[in-house]
Amino acid sequence: MNAVHAIDVTRAQLFALVRRPAAWTIVAAMIVLNQVFSFVIPYLSYRSADPSGFDAGATPEELLAGTLPAQVVTNTLGGFPVFAGALALALGALVLGSEYGWGTFKTIVTQRPARLSVLAGQMLAVITFIAGTVVMLFAMSIVTSTAIALGEGESAALPSVSHLAEGYVGGTLVLSTWAIIGATLAVVLRSVALPVGLGIVWALGIENLLSAMARTALSALEPLRDVLPGVNAGSLVAALTPERIGSAAPGVAETVSGGRAITTLLAYVVVAAVVAAWCHRRRDVA
């Protein structure tokens, strides 16, 4: 693999990716979900006559405090383990799987650069796009929470720079893991629709079912539960947001330690990339 060629592919892929409406649709969906569930619904519940409907047992003061800038890391990362993660998986599948749907795979692999350079460049482009998306999510959360704070006469103080940086790096790791898993599924299955369907069913359904069974009925499933990507993503978010107010978002739970979660997520990225490289290198162009 040639590093220079991989960087050239990354630049070319980003040039194409930022011009794809489907990619921005996914980003818009992440932003809308984040804004609605982290700010709009809690704030409207706070302003209503019966604020207990959104978070049972929470007082109006707690509902308001949960939307302020001090909680920006918690509110931004809350949906990453499940909903934003599923959308990131769809993005990864979209980038690499489209080459098979468009029939451009043959053209790419029969010309320079080498196959592994192309694959590395595509995956780097996915991670770079994810990193930029996380910046946008944090920026929108800061703007919305600051507007609420100013409107309600509350403190607009943000968390420390180090805490924001930790949240950003952790959030980028979580979404990048899901995106690389989606990209690998697209390479293995040579399509977009099937990886997206399987990935979303896994992220939103199967993982939650296995976790619930391990927690309630079948404790023998705990070792399996503790290595699932969504569980580790939720554990990392929980470790990064100890100051959260009220109930944790779906999928956010301290199942394993933050350090173990980071190691597991990085292992998923490496293993997924190796599997994708093996399939990509050996695939027949016919």
Rank of each mutant, 00 (worst) to 15 (best):
Ser247Ala: 13
Leu64Tyr: 08
Leu44Ile: 01
Ala249Gly: 00
Leu194Arg: 07
Ala23Leu: 03
Leu221Lys: 14
Gly57Ile: 12
Ser117Pro: 09
Asp55Pro: 02
Gly199Cys: 05
Leu14His: 05
Glu154Ile: 00
Arg20Asn: 15
Thr76Arg: 03
Ala249Met: 00
Gly170Cys: 12
Thr59Met: 00
Pro223Ser: 07
Arg47Met: 15
Val169Tyr: 01
Thr184Met: 06
Gly182Phe: 01
Ala183Val: 02
Gly197Met: 04
Gln122Lys: 15
Ala157Ile: 11
Val135Thr: 10
Ala276Glu: 10
Leu119Ile: 05
Pro242Thr: 05
Arg283Asn: 00
Gly258Met: 05
Ala28Glu: 12
Phe83Cys: 04
Glu254Ile: 01
Leu137His: 10
Val174Cys: 09
Val72Lys: 06
Leu210Gln: 06
Pro69His: 08
Phe37Glu: 05
Ser117Lys: 09
Arg20Asp: 15
Ala65Val: 04
Pro159Phe: 03
Ile181Trp: 01
Leu185Val: 04
Val143Lys: 10
Trp24Asn: 11
Ile127Tyr: 03
Leu17Gln: 13
Val40Met: 14
Leu265Tyr: 02
Thr107Ile: 02
Pro69Trp: 06
Arg115Trp: 08
Trp102Met: 09
Glu243Ser: 12
Gly170Asn: 13
Glu254Tyr: 00
Phe105His: 15
Ala147Trp: 02
Leu119Ser: 08
Gln13Phe: 00
Thr146Val: 10
Gly66His: 00
Asp226Ser: 12
Ala261Thr: 07
Ala3Cys: 00
Pro51Ala: 03
Leu265Val: 04
Ala239Pro: 09
Gly66Lys: 12
Leu240Pro: 04
Asp8Cys: 13
Ile181Met: 12
Leu96Gly: 09
Val169Gly: 08
Pro195Lys: 03
Pro51Asn: 10
Thr177Glu: 05
Met123Trp: 01
Val269Asn: 03
Ile262Ala: 01
Leu33Asp: 05
Gly78Leu: 07
Gly230Gln: 08
Gly53Met: 09
Glu254Phe: 00
Leu228Glu: 04
Glu61Arg: 12
Arg283Val: 02
Ala193Ile: 13
Val237Phe: 00
Ala22Asn: 06
Ser52Thr: 06
Ala253Asp: 09
Ile206Val: 15
Leu210Lys: 02
Ala183Asp: 03
Leu209Ile: 15
Ser191Arg: 08
Met136Gln: 12
Pro51Lys: 04
Asp226Val: 01
Leu91Glu: 11
Gly153Leu: 14
Ser98Phe: 05
Asp284Met: 00
Val192Ala: 04
Ser211Ile: 03
Val82Leu: 11
Val274Glu: 02
Gly57Lys: 09
Val285Arg: 08
Gly151Thr: 11
Ser155Tyr: 08
Glu62Gln: 15
Ile148Met: 08
